[in-house]
Simulated assay, not measured.
Amino acid sequence: MKLMYYFLVNRTSGKGRSVKVWNEIEAILKEKNVEYQVIITETKDEGLAFINNLLTLNQDISGIIALGGDGTIHEIMNRLIGTNVPFSVIPTGSGNDYARARGISKDYVKEIEKLLQNDKKKIDLLEIGDRHCMTVVGIGFDAKVADEANKMKWKKWFGGLAYLMTILKVLITYKPSSIKLTLNNEERVFEKVWLIAIANHAYYGGGIKICPNALSDDGKLDICIIHSLPKWRLLFILANVFKGKHVTMKGVDYLQVESIQVDSDDPLFVTADGEMMGQTPTSVSVKKEAFHVML
């Protein structure tokens, strides 16, 4: 069967870097006589419309590859669930946490060589309401930080640094909450909870290694709960989060389950792949081998 690859290039991702990278990738594809089609989009809706058309036409699709960041990936993944179409990314966004967790580098020459080998596998996803998440669901402090960071006009210029700067801003006024968790079928109450991270991959927030043991093919959710700490102690833990060295510290619970229900005294922000999902109460479960990816 003839291989046919489809590329989605988000023009606005990475300060316009996507288009520059695409121009060089296209030259490689032509040199190798690879069959491909490309759409350069201004909005997420344009990319989704392109995918919808492909699926409607029942085309032979060897793979869909996005040039963009985690927001682009989140939307495409939610459209491709339930199909056998394999997906990958060339990271050109500000965060690139999905790519980081899967070992996909910014060396696009190397990554294209890997993609053209046409190797595939299935990975788990997080299911949250009627949406799915590739990387991490954040609840509480981290979700508030993500919400504030997404509002910043200069986020794309600073990447992970923007997230760190926003942490300090939100910390000034944020108050921890009492939360009841139903972990599988067991109820537990945690006091003064700062954040809950529910992970399918290790990273979020532009390189923060919140759940260092998270794997997308183990059928488990990795849960990191940071609670019962004063602000100064929280800062110390957050300083260690970037390298994943926080999980054994006092005030951190690290668990693995297959489902979690989160109920809080006051509504808390919820994000998935850095995108706003609403507020608590919320439920998250693992959807095993739900998505096809290219290696």
Rank of each mutant, 00 (worst) to 15 (best):
K44F: 11
V241W: 03
Q37I: 00
Y203P: 06
H132P: 02
M152C: 03
H292D: 11
V270M: 11
H74P: 03
G93N: 08
G274D: 06
N58Y: 02
K120W: 06
K32N: 11
G159Q: 04
Y254V: 04
D217A: 07
I123A: 07
S216Y: 02
L221V: 09
D60E: 15
H74W: 05
S228W: 01
K209D: 06
D142E: 09
R233Y: 14
Y254R: 06
I210G: 09
H292K: 13
P176K: 08
A272R: 08
M152S: 12
K287E: 09
E42I: 00
V257C: 10
K153P: 00
M1A: 10
V38E: 08
D217S: 14
V262C: 13
L255N: 10
S178N: 13
I90D: 07
I139K: 04
R188K: 15
T280Q: 01
V257G: 00
T56S: 14
I208Y: 15
D130H: 07
N184C: 09
P91W: 06
I112G: 04
V89N: 06
N52P: 00
G274R: 05
E46S: 03
N200Q: 12
R131L: 13
K169D: 06
K155V: 00
K151Q: 15
D107A: 01
A149F: 04
Q256A: 10
Y108I: 08
S88Q: 12
D97W: 04
V89D: 03
A290L: 10
G95D: 07
I123H: 07
Y108M: 08
V252H: 09
V262L: 08
N78F: 10
I25M: 11
D45F: 01
E26L: 02
P91E: 06
V21M: 11
G206I: 04
Q261P: 00
E186V: 14
L168C: 00
L67Y: 09
G274Y: 06
M77L: 15
K192L: 10
G140F: 05
F269C: 06
N96E: 03
K110E: 10
K209G: 04
T280G: 02
G14H: 09
D124N: 10
N118K: 10
K287F: 01
G71S: 08
K180F: 00
I139D: 02
V293H: 03
F87V: 11
N84P: 01
D222E: 14
N10D: 14
V145F: 03
H74V: 05
N213Q: 15
P230V: 13
L168S: 07
K180T: 15
H227W: 01
I104C: 05
L183R: 11
K245G: 12
L115R: 01
G274T: 06
C211L: 04
P176C: 10
K180R: 15
L215S: 14
S105K: 12
G160L: 02
L295D: 08
D107R: 03
